[in-house]
């Protein structure tokens, strides 16, 4: 006998049960409950993107919140030419790049802790180089080196790597978010990967 999973009861009248388009319509009329639901749906992805760009939890918190507030105030100008998600992402990306330009090269790392599953990930453990001069390097050290290497990339190159290789976005989505063509996304990704490989080859088995 096959037991099916219990289907959650979705009430389309509550913000939690509404489609994205309906939530956007309600939020445009000033319904903050609807906007709260939109924030809940995208907060993790927006925060993660900003965090991976800044390598700083506090900055990511501020920028992500600012992006959501800016999006709410600009909702009336949202024409629906793209999805709300893409439009929101664009706001967050622009805010992040502006922030990084102001901050320039002053990097203050405030890295989040690795979760408990990291040490059980054989792919990651296997990457720790046995040829490195820092033989005892652990995953935490590797995390730090990885973030340092990412911060050496220019903002557009870092953004492409974060969106594609960390967040799993497609080339098309990235092109729409960054307002450039797909060829540019591909070339930036290739160049950024080459750069990262050069920076990290000493610490990880990448070749």
């Amino acid at each position: 006998m096959i037991m099916s999973e219990p289907v959650p009861i979705v009430d389309s009248n509550t913000p939690g049960g509404m489609l994205e388009g309906d939530l956007v319509k309600h939020a445009r009329r000033g319904d903050l409950e609807a906007y709260d639901e939109l924030v809940k749906r995208y907060q993790q992805r927006i925060y993660a993107t900003v965090y991976h760009m800044t390598s700083n939890h506090e900055d990511a918190n501020d920028i992500a919140q600012d992006a959501f507030i800016k999006a709410y105030s600009a909702l009336k100008s949202f024409k629906g030419g793209s999805t709300f998600y893409t439009w929101l992402y664009r706001i967050a990306v622009n805010k992040t790049i502006n922030f990084l330009k102001q901050r320039k090269n002053k990097h203050h790392f405030s890295l989040n802790d690795l979760d408990f599953n990291t040490e059980n990930n054989p792919d990651l453990v296997a990457l720790i180089s046995d040829k490195t001069p820092v033989r005892e390097v652990g995953l935490t050290e590797l995390q730090k080196k990885l973030n340092e290497a990412l911060m050496k990339l220019s903002e557009p190159h870092r953004m492409v790597v974060v969106l594609h290789d960390v967040q799993g976005q497609s080339h098309e989505e990235i092109a729409e978010i960054m307002n450039c063509n797909i060829g540019t996304v591909r070339s930036r990704l290739f160049y950024a990967r080459q750069q990262l490989q050069g920076y990290l080859s000493e610490y990880a088995k990448l070749a």
Binding site: L111, N112, N121, L127, L139, V162, V166, L196, L200, L206
Partner: peptide, 15 residues
């Protein structure tokens, strides 16, 4: 290999 290493970023979680 680099992509696998970049997966490490996904394990960085906020409090």
């Amino acid at each position: 290999a680099l992509k696998k290493l970049l997966q490490l970023k996904q394990h960085e979680v906020p409090p």
